[in-house]
Each structure stands twice: as structure tokens, then as C-alpha cells.
């Protein structure tokens, strides 16, 4: 039982990762692919933040009376990763807008057919 409680966070995170990853590789619609990519990345962020938590700790900002702080390093890494993630999302979406303009569709199989027809 303890083993399950100690690993519950990790397992949920993994379910989320799998869900996100599945959306990315199975979706035919490009917008949905990008949503999946975001879900995938957010679940990785959860993995990092989970490992930074110390039971009974507080947020890593010095306050009087606090004895135990959670680990600030994963927070820093994930701040960076979030910003990297939004940058990738913006580029992906801009590509989708252009693909829509060039092909008239954002469904992967449809523009593949158009390319093959050439």
C-alpha cells in the first residue's frame, strides 16, 4: 500500500505522458497534434516538480520559521522548459496557419494525398 502511495504521483504522470504521446502520434489533425505535444510536455514538467517536493517543506522562498524548503532546482529547470515549450507551440501553430493557406487543409492524410498527386 505504501509503495502505491509513494508512487501514485509518478504513475499518474506516466498516464498523462502516454495520453499526450498517443495524441501526438495518432492525431490526423495538426492542431490536435500540437495540443498533444503540450499535454506530453506538461506531464514531463509534473514529473520534475514531483521529484522536487519535500514532505512538510514550503516553497523555496526564505521566510521566518520555515525549517524545510522544497528543492528549487527542478522549479528552475521547468520554468525554462515551459518557456521553451510555448516557443515551440508558437512555431508549430504558425506552420499550421501556413499549411492551411498552401493546402487548404490541416488534416495530415489530405495534404499527403495532394503531395503524392504531383
Amino acid at each position: 500500500m505504501n509503495f502505491i502511495l509513494d508512487h501514485y504521483n509518478y504513475w499518474i504522470t506516466i498516464i498523462l505522458m502516454m495520453a499526450g504521446f498517443y495524441i501526438v502520434i495518432s492525431a490526423n489533425n495538426l492542431v490536435k497534434k500540437i495540443v498533444g505535444l503540450n499535454v506530453f510536455q506538461v506531464s514531463v514538467f509534473l514529473l520534475y516538480i514531483t521529484m522536487g517536493k519535500v514532505s512538510g517543506g514550503t516553497a523555496p522562498i526564505v521566510v521566518d520559521g520555515a525549517t524545510q524548503y522544497s528543492n528549487p532546482l527542478p522549479h528552475v529547470l521547468i520554468l525554462t522548459a515551459i518557456v521553451v515549450g510555448v516557443a515551440t507551440t508558437a512555431v508549430g501553430l504558425a506552420l499550421i496557419v501556413r499549411i492551411k493557406g498552401a493546402y487548404g487543409t490541416v488534416e495530415e492524410n489530405e495534404f499527403k494525398d495532394q503531395d503524392d498527386a504531383i
Binding site: V42, Y69, P74, I82, G85
Partner: peptide, 25 residues
């Protein structure tokens, strides 16, 4: 999980900007 800075960023960047851009697309 005590990651207040990350929560702040996720709310403004992930839920804010990303969603706006997705809706725009």
C-alpha cells in the same frame, strides 16, 4: 507541490498565451 514560480508561469504561459494562440489558429 510548492512550485509557486512554476505555477505562475504555467498559468500565464501555458493556460494563457498558448491557449490564445491555439484559438487564433
Amino acid at each position: 507541490l510548492d512550485a509557486v514560480d512554476v505555477a505562475f508561469t504555467e498559468a500565464s504561459v501555458g493556460a494563457g498565451i498558448s491557449t490564445v494562440l491555439m484559438l487564433g489558429t
